[in-house]
Design a protein around this nucleic acid. Structure first.
Lengths: 190, 190
DNA sequence: CCTACCGATCGGTAGG
DNA sequence: CCTACCGATCGGTAGG
């Protein structure tokens, strides 16, 4: 079991660095000091690795953001808290987040469809905050779907922050707060 | 020559839809109604296609944004115009933009390094606008590198807008303006 | 966890 | 632009 976790961790790093299709099972085995065939004592297929990474991250995002949505905060504070929670998940699992964001399309059915449905549900959850804010006159009247995509997309670079020249290491609490602020302030009515 | 353009156009669509590594030359040939071997009368390699797509898009982004940077606009209007120009390029070439944004890492050296340098130069150009705005007290005091990454990342979903349920078809001028506004307003001091 | 190996598929070439 | 084909590599299995 511990071995399987090691495999998954290395798979996350390689899938993120090179992409799922460009990572061979031989590559993965090599980083673990074993032969490719030996991997199959711990996993059943390459795609199973991808599925587990993607759906485990989906769980993480929901676990972080759902309590915020259920909270009694007002739209502005709720949206801020949701984006901060979302950023916190990426910061906590940068490799797996990058795989979640970019490699999911290489899953086969029926997992692919499940994944798309899950993502739709996630966006819908955040969209509800935006819609409430608009209806209360606190947020600008802009297509909520467009708003949510811009918000989430604006966070999607952060998994690579630790590789950047200027922004090395994990994002600090303050940086997470600043990114959130940039995104949320652009939506608030003046 | 016209044939080569057809090949490139189909390659853009397939690389974008399935990813570079998951697109075979046989896939590409099939969409063109020819055999894989015949492609090599028009191109020299699969990677050449990727390089030409990526660097052609790089040229487009620079051609759109450089005049804005050189203009006498103030930081706020200049940043707005730069983001709008950036969004305009994506809207005009959605497939190629998606490839530019996601598939570049599959280029080999020395092209890969050239590409990274080019991207750095592009970000630096936009960062200069942000830095000027901060120094004039018009923009909030936030790490300009973080700001630029958030801005550009916030535009990176737009190439898929025409596939979305709620946002079908190319982005309208108004939608481009709204996205720009969300991103830029979040940076301006109050 | 390894050796040995499989059928499938890959990018690309030769020759016409 | 096609047929025929190449060596390399792929994900995965058999058997120990």
């Amino acid at each position: 079991m511990a071995r399987k976790d090691q495999i998954r961790q290395k798979a996350q790093a390689l899938f993120r660095e090179r992409g799922y299709r460009a990572t061979s099972m031989r590559d993965l085995a090599e980083t673990l000091g074993m032969e490719a065939a030996s991997l199959y004592n711990h996993i059943s297929s390459k795609e199973e690795l991808l599925q587990q990474i993607c759906f485990a991250m989906a769980d993480q995002f929901f676990e972080a953001v759902e309590p915020v949505v259920a909270s009694p905060l007002g739209p502005k504070e709720k949206l801020r808290a949701a984006i901060e929670a979302h950023l916190g998940v990426i910061a906590a699992s940068a490799d797996a987040s990058a795989v979640f964001l970019h490699e999911w399309r290489h899953m086969g059915e029926p997992f692919l469809n499940d994944f798309k449905l899950m993502r739709r549900r996630y966006e819908k959850m955040i969209r509800a905050i935006v819609e409430e804010g608009i209806s209360l006159g606190m947020f600008r009247k802009i297509d909520p779907s467009l708003v949510v995509r811009t918000l989430l997309s604006g966070t999607n670079w952060t998994y690579e922050s630790y590789k950047s020249h200027r922004l090395q290491g994990k994002l600090s609490e303050q940086e997470i707060s600043e990114i959130t602020s940039i995104l949320v302030e652009g939506i608030i009515t003046r």
